[in-house]
Amino acid sequence: MKLTLKIWRQSGPNDKGQIVTYPIDNIEGNMSFLDMMDVLNEELIMKGDDPVAFDHDCREGICGMCSLFINGEAHGPDRAVTTCQLHMRKFSDGETIYIEPWRAKAFPVVKDLVVDRSAFDRVMAAGGFVSVNTSGNTVDANAIPISKINADKAFEAATCIGCGACVASCVNASAMLFVSAKVSQLALLPQGKVEATERVLNMVRTMDEEGFGNCTNTGACAVECPKEISLDNIARMNREYFKAMLTSE
């Protein structure tokens, strides 16, 4: 396969950046999108050029590091996959492919296609946890009975890998899908109920402070999410927040 790549190049946080065009050849359908990026980078290195910086780690769809906005969609045109799981057979010979970083004020570009997603970490630090007694009499989590339905819903919410595709896809750069998945996975379980009120207030406050936009319920996030996190979680967080807003002191 012969392709034309239009890639965002930006040497550092303060560089203005621009789209640069790279022709590439000998791409096979069974390569992953990141394999293709590796081929390109090898060519660039051979030529003595600066390789394109992009994030990746596990390359099996579980770490959430890869984060490319491909041809106008987060993680590319396929559904329910991360960029590392996207196969080149989804593209056709001669195609032009735009590759851009996540665009959000809260995710500043570090270099080329790498963005700083530590805003998510700060949202997590604000409440994405349960406090556990570790002084020697820690209670086994499985000692508390949990309904199968809630356990499943909590598990589904917990499959969020924090990649940020939801923010990247949202016209408002809203982080509601991510934050609601993290609020939900704990709110659904008895251990999480203890700190539920402060959790949702603090996580949403941090989300706002980090400069993410406001949700308009476009639903783009859930369509582009590689883990198919459902909008049910956003509705649940809206309910949790309503309760918390009216009952907190």
Binding site: I19, K105, S174, G211
Partner: peptide, 13 residues
Amino acid sequence: NKKARPIQYAMNK
């Protein structure tokens, strides 16, 4: 919301 995405995508589907 406009401020939350200061730089637009070159290609947005």
